[in-house]
């Protein structure tokens, strides 16, 4: 019985991570790809790890704290990497694909302000 639940959860997680890999192929620029990377992959890996946890809990009767720690770690670090990559890509100078961009003007002003204060 528990095997069925485990297999269904593993397959769901696998399909989610495959979809996000397809997103790598289809989406136009880094920022939209980072959407695919942070959301779908996190949920997919979470499904797989949870199913592993359930399997060892019900079949072998052992609660693996390491696995819980891994789940929490993935949960905490995935959004941080997404934010970091988007931010450093913008600072690196990759142009976003869309039209609306309210960040560019503010960043430019900020840069000018720091340049003036360092000169003075």
């Amino acid at each position: 019985m528990i095997e069925i639940v485990v297999v269904v959860m593993v397959l769901a997680g696998t399909v989610l991570s495959l979809i996000s890999s397809l997103g790598f192929l289809r989406l136009p620029d880094v920022y939209t790809r980072s959407h695919a990377a942070t959301k779908s992959i996190t949920l997919g890996i979470l499904f797989i790890l949870l199913s592993t946890f359930l399997y060892f809990m019900f079949v072998h009767n052992q609660v693996s704290v390491r696995l819980l720690l891994g789940i929490i770690f993935v949960f905490l670090t995935a959004p941080v990497t997404g934010h970091l990559i988007a931010r450093s890509a913008y600072r690196f100078g990759v142009k976003p694909a869309g039209i609306t961009d309210e960040l560019a003007a503010d960043l430019e002003r900020e840069k000018r302000k720091t340049a003036e204060s360092s000169q003075a």
Binding site: T14, V30, A37, S51, F56, I85
Partner: peptide
């Protein structure tokens, strides 16, 4: 096309490897 793309792809490879190890454990 750009360096951040490559970093993003490497990151997702890491997550997929985590999934593979978990499935192998089962």
């Amino acid at each position: 096309p750009s360096l951040p793309d490559r970093i993003l792809a490497l990151d997702s490879i890491g997550y997929n490897i985590i999934g593979i190890v978990a499935v192998l454990c089962i």
